[in-house]
Simulated assay, not measured.
Amino acid sequence: MSSRFRVSRRQFLASSAAGAAALTLPGRAAFAQSFPDHNINITIPTGEGGGADRDVRLITQIWKKYLNTDFEFGYYPGAAGQVGYEFFMKREPDGYNLLFANMGPEVIMLTLQNVGIQLGKDLVYINQTSSEPMSVFVGKRSKFQSLQELVDEGKKRAITCSVSRLPHPASIGMLALGEATGANFNLVPFGGGNPSAMAAITGEVDCCALPFANPITLGSEVRILGVFSDKNPAPDQSGDAPTVNSVFGTKLPELTSSRGFAVQAAAMEKFPDRIETIKKTCAQVLADPDYVEAVQKAGLPKEFIDPGDQQKAMSTAEATRELAEKYRALLTGK
């Protein structure tokens, strides 16, 4: 052995003691435990300017109070979210890469499409930030004044209904409504909430089905005909729109979508402390009055804020997966 690598026992003990002492110094300890020490990247599997983009920016503008860092956003729409998920899984699993998920449609996508990403094994939803039911609405100049009128027309001809993507709780709602009433709904995917809503406003389609926040933020430009929920959570902001089941006496399941953050399972294994920091500080954001105020200023009901931990988020995902399997034939035609 070369003398360069020969260390006496006394030298080893001395250097070990010095190293241990150095780690107890406040500055050195802070350096060793510093997270995050650079920007956090957030992958969004939809286009810029959509509902997920709006929501994640509302969160991150408050999150800076609790995490001393900046956030960078990347948008990867395509294949009902598959493009974004596949891109995210290739990112470094180090806690600096997060995915902001629209769990409803994206769990349906993972269930129905051959993506090769398993929830729990490959990817984990670590929290839940909001939840909202699905809704059906028309433009303000539409001849349809009620959901009953829309369904009656659907018994005579095919009603065109814009949706952001086919694998979506709103799609399940319209197909299940057609199955229950005998109405014929032809779903037309427009690749995002904004173009889907605009198609209804301009009359390009007869109606639109999207998460409830979309027509609420459009205000007088649209008329909300129904909500796929047991109860309308925002009657004052929706013209007291009825629930679909109350109109037809049906027993359609509640169709909601939750948003939240996800990480690669490998990140949880390698850097559990970092992921716990993400969870803890995000929970602080959702309880912050400044965040509630920001949500309301964006024209959204504060009732849509729905904080949940990893267990709740994964339970929500599992319930959606079961729903996708139940309506697989309607969604895929197989």
Score class of each variant (00 low, 15 high):
F5W: 13
R6N: 11
R6S: 11
V7Q: 08
V7L: 13
V7W: 07
S8E: 15
S8M: 12
S8P: 12
S8A: 15
R10H: 14
R10I: 14
R10C: 14
Q11I: 04
Q11M: 10
Q11A: 13
F12V: 04
F12T: 05
F12N: 06
F12A: 12
F12W: 10
L13E: 11
L13P: 00
L13C: 08
A14C: 09
A14E: 11
A14V: 09
A14W: 12
A14P: 00
S15H: 08
S15L: 13
A17H: 06
A17R: 07
A17M: 11
A18F: 09
A18T: 06
G19Y: 14
G19S: 15
A20R: 11
A20G: 08
A20S: 07
A20N: 06
A21K: 00
A21S: 04
A21G: 07
A22V: 03
A22S: 09
A22R: 07
A22T: 00
L23G: 01
L23P: 03
L23W: 02
T24V: 05
T24C: 03
T24F: 08
L25I: 00
L25Y: 01
L25M: 01
P26L: 05
G27W: 00
G27M: 02
G27F: 01
G27R: 06
G27C: 03
R28G: 02
A29T: 01
A29Y: 03
A29L: 13
A30W: 01
A30L: 07
A30M: 04
A30Y: 03
A30I: 02
F31K: 09
F31H: 08
A32Y: 02
A32N: 09
A32P: 01
Q33E: 15
Q33R: 13
Q33V: 08
Q33F: 10
Q33M: 10
S34L: 14
S34R: 15
S34E: 10
S34T: 08
S34F: 04
F35I: 05
P36E: 10
P36K: 08
P36V: 02
P36M: 11
P36A: 11
D37V: 05
D37C: 09
H38T: 05
H38K: 08
H38R: 13
N39L: 15
N39K: 15
N39T: 11
I40G: 00
I40P: 01
N41R: 13
N41L: 12
N41Y: 03
